[in-house]
C-alpha cells in the first residue's frame, strides 16, 4: 500500500515539516487578514460612496479570480514586470491575505450593520460615552459573531495552501510527491499510502479548528 516509504529515512518528519509550512502560510495570512479586514470592514460600514465602489470592485475581483491565477500573477508577474524578486512564501502570504482581507472585511461590515440601532441607543441612554459603547457593548458582540467565521476562514486557507506548490513552495503535498517520486522503483504503489497520510494530516490540522468554531458558534448564538 505504500506506507512503508514513510518509515524510510526522515520521510515522516519531512511531511510534518511540509505541513508546518502550510500552517505557517495560512496562520500568518489570517492574522494579516484580520487586522486589515477589520479596518476595511469598519470603513465599508461608514457607507462612504467612494469607499463603497472601491471595496465592491475589490471584493468582486477576489470572488472571481482563481487563487492560482493570483499566485502566478504576484509571483511570476511582478518579477518580470516590476523587477521585484519576491520570495515564494511572501508571494503566497500576499495572495492569501488579499483574499482573506476581502472576506474578513465583508464579515466585519455585515456584523457591524447587523447590530441593531437600539444597542447603541440603550447604551448611550445609560450614560456610556461613544468609546465605552464600542468597548463594552458593540465590539464584544461583533467579535462573538466574527470569531467562528474567521476560524472557518483559517481551515479554508489551510486547505487552499495546497496550491502554493505551484510556485515552488515545498509544502506538505509537494513533500509527498517528492517521496513518491524518489521511491518510484522500490515502492511503485506508494502514492496511495502517502496521499492517504497527507489526507489525514490535513484532517488532523483542520478538524479541531472546525470543532472549535462550531463550539463557539453554539456558545455565543444569540
Amino acid at each position: 500500500m505504500g506506507f512503508e516509504v514513510l518509515l524510510k529515512g526522515n520521510n515522516m518528519v519531512r511531511l510534518l515539516a511540509g505541513l508546518a509550512v502550510s500552517l505557517r502560510i495560512s496562520l500568518v495570512s489570517v492574522a494579516i487578514s484580520i487586522v486589515l479586514g477589520v479596518i476595511l470592514g469598519i470603513l465599508m460600514a461608514l457607507k462612504n460612496p467612494i469607499i463603497t465602489v472601491i471595496s465592491r470592485v475589490y471584493l468582486e475581483i477576489v470572488r472571481i479570480m482563481p487563487q492560482m491565477v493570483l499566485l502566478f500573477l504576484v509571483y511570476f508577474g511582478t518579477t518580470k514586470a516590476m523587477g521585484i524578486n519576491l520570495e515564494a512564501e511572501t508571494a503566497a502570504v500576499i495572495v492569501f491575505s488579499f483574499w482573506g482581507t476581502a472576506e474578513m472585511a465583508d464579515l466585519v461590515r455585515g456584523a457591524l450593520l447587523n447590530i441593531p440601532a437600539i444597542q447603541y441607543e440603550s447604551s448611550i441612554s445609560l450614560g456610556l460615552n461613544k468609546l465605552q459603547t464600542y468597548r463594552y457593548v458593540i465590539v464584544p458582540q461583533i467579535i462573538r459573531r466574527m470569531i467562528p467565521l474567521s476560524i472557518n476562514l483559517i481551515t479554508r486557507m489551510i486547505k487552499t495552501t495546497s496550491l502554493v506548490m505551484m510556485i515552488g513552495i515545498v509544502e506538505v503535498l509537494k513533500v509527498g510527491q517528492q517521496i513518491i517520486e524518489a521511491n518510484r522503483k522500490a515502492s511503485p504503489g506508494a502514492a496511495f499510502g502517502v496521499f492517504l497520510i497527507i489526507f489525514l494530516l490535513y484532517f488532523i490540522a483542520c478538524w479541531p479548528i472546525s470543532m472549535l468554531s462550531r463550539y463557539l458558534e453554539k456558545r455565543w448564538e444569540n
Partner: peptide, 10 residues
Amino acid sequence: VFQSYDLFPH
C-alpha cells in the same frame, strides 16, 4: 426603557 431588544445579548 425601550419597546424591546435593548438588553446587551453578550
